[in-house]
Design a protein around this nucleic acid. Structure first.
Lengths: 169, 169
DNA sequence: CCAATAACCAAGTAATTTAGTCAACTATAT
DNA sequence: ATATAGTTGACTAAATTACTTGGTTATTGG
């Protein structure tokens, strides 16, 4: 069963994208700053998210990533699936060959658990998350922190503008 | 989120114990043989299971482990908790300090998921598992295999008796 | 009593995975 | 042209898992 920082990072980044994306693509650099996830690591994750057709990329200046479809059509389970190979709790990846080609004693238990988890995460869309009160307030806090960080850095005016518009748009 | 071979082994071993324990304690060597789990590894796991008071040990010849209480009072969640430090899906172990002492954007999602998993596994007792048809048939298969293995080894008559009685009792 | 049994315990280790770095390359907007 | 930002691959440090090794203690049947 794999559900570690990798899957959490992916969902967090996608939720960040969902909150801040309106028309312009969002760069990984912005997500990296707000969610404090290594840029290079985000690149790896978004490579998989793109392969899973959950996001589309726009290259070049002003580029970034956009969600491939509407918020109510992207589910947490899909995101986790895209970066982890599965959220399967069995040792045999559901194949049922855990003990000499046959199922082990607890195979069905883990299979049932996998179904439960998958069902739960499949029911949660990005839209649902974005609409949550706690998510809204946490996002607002992150925006403020991000703006403070900008003050402490030696950025030029255009950098600042990009970050501010993505917050307030 | 930790739910790997470790937790699976622990549950499998406990279920094996539940199936075969009637009055006499069951040695880890027997469980090791039937479930194909390294004996030394089982020792480590049972050390934790004993600390969690899920099993009691009997030392010396004829010794082994017994469940500390009845089958309907031991739940899968307790077993996993005993060997993994938690089945928590959050990155902060539920403390809510995932981002600079405050909750991260997806904290509540993982917290909810943890509750779901815990609730599911808390509802499954060893008794429920033992009563399942698939568990019964798999256990029977394992007994047959264990007996075949005995034939291939150079064991004395008393060894054979111990294993057979534990199967049929 | 004593030897066999089986739990107990600590330390070490190989393999795997995660999380992240580094260095290059490609497409595109200004 | 040049800066931006995605794309890709290889590589690495740290952590964790899944063991192994080598003991020690307690208990029991002979």
């Amino acid at each position: 069963m794999r559900l570690t920082t990798k899957g959490r990072y992916a969902v967090t980044a996608m939720l960040d994208l969902a909150i801040h994306s309106h028309c312009d693509p969002i760069s990984l650099a912005e997500i990296s700053k707000r969610q404090e996830i290594s840029l290079s690591y985000l690149e790896q994750l978004f490579s998989k998210l793109r392969q899973a057709e959950l996001v589309v990329s726009v290259r070049g200046p002003g580029g970034g990533y956009k969600l491939s479809r509407s918020l109510d059509d992207i589910f947490v389970a899909q995101i986790v699936d895209a970066v982890n190979e599965s959220i399967d709790a069995t040792s045999c990846q559901g194949k049922g060959n855990c003990q000499h080609g046959e199922v082990c004693l607890t195979h069905h238990l883990w299979s049932d658990l996998s179904d439960q988890i998958h069902h739960f995460l499949s029911g949660i869309s990005l839209e649902k998350l974005v609409d949550r009160g706690d998510v809204k307030s946490i996002s607002q806090r992150q925006n403020n922190v991000a703006l403070e960080d900008v003050d402490h850095e030696d950025l030029n005016q255009s950098d600042l503008r990009v970050i501010q518009t993505s917050h307030t748009a």
